[in-house]
Amino acid sequence: MIRTEGLTRRFGDRLAVDGLTLEVREGEILGLLGPNGAGKTTTVRMLACLLAPTGGRAWVGGHEVGKEASAIRSTVGILTESPGFYKRLTLERNMRYFAELYGVPDPRSAVQRYLERLGLWDRRTDAVATLSKGLRQRLALARALVHEPKVLFLDEPTAGLDPESARDVRRFIAELADERRTILLCTHNLTEAEELCNRIAVLRTRLIALDRPAALKRRMSGSRVTVELGNPRPEFARDLGLPCVRAAELAGPTLQVEVADPERDVPALVRRLVELGAEIRAVARDERSLEDVYLELVGGNDAPA
């Protein structure tokens, strides 16, 4: 649904996006993660035909960016970082304006459908100026959807929202994915990315990593396994005698074992410990959080994965 090949954007001497190549499948939510200035918003703007790429090519819904701007604009819905509205006009009027600009055949019913879905129908005759930030964000989502786009670009959809509003927005995004819409989600919220996204692309001008959240965590996780023992004895560390074990250390009731591949080697390790007479209370892999992975990726590694 979205494909980029070496997509690049320069602003004068500054390189904002450098040779981005990725593909987002239909119905997939791809999270774009990266620090401020990493090129997330620039990427979204290029794909929404708001900025022209200075290099590379991209396709959205089968239409080429830069050549079929009008078709792309009709195909995509965009939630901008700070979504603005005509504050003096009502919610319904704001929505109807955009529905009509997008050429929605029956704007009134489309507006009603999305205002109801986002729980805003009762406030339809209020001026937008009277809405809280959370409600405005919901209205912005409704506006992005009013023309039934197949592709959605959501730039920081929960930024600055209270936890309850953020949860509502996240639930709604999950519902959208169930409707087979393709979503590109820019966010700084790693929990949100992990909860919602099928895959995550970490960007720092260049693409640093692209994978499923679990795979990213696994890839960056260590090879250490922690075993909590009910009867800790020194031989449990000394006599393991497994080729996959690189090191073992007992500290109190905790046995720390360094293995070659935790996913493959943990069953063998547990079997061996049971043979040695160990009472195993818990086994845990030294799994990193997405935050750890992200910080390591954007902190040092420049090489694209």
Binding site: R73, T80, P83, G84, F85
Partner: peptide, 9 residues
């Protein structure tokens, strides 16, 4: 409102 407006056809 300019960015959402420019994103329309």
């Amino acid at each position: 409102t300019l960015e959402p407006l420019l994103a329309t056809p």
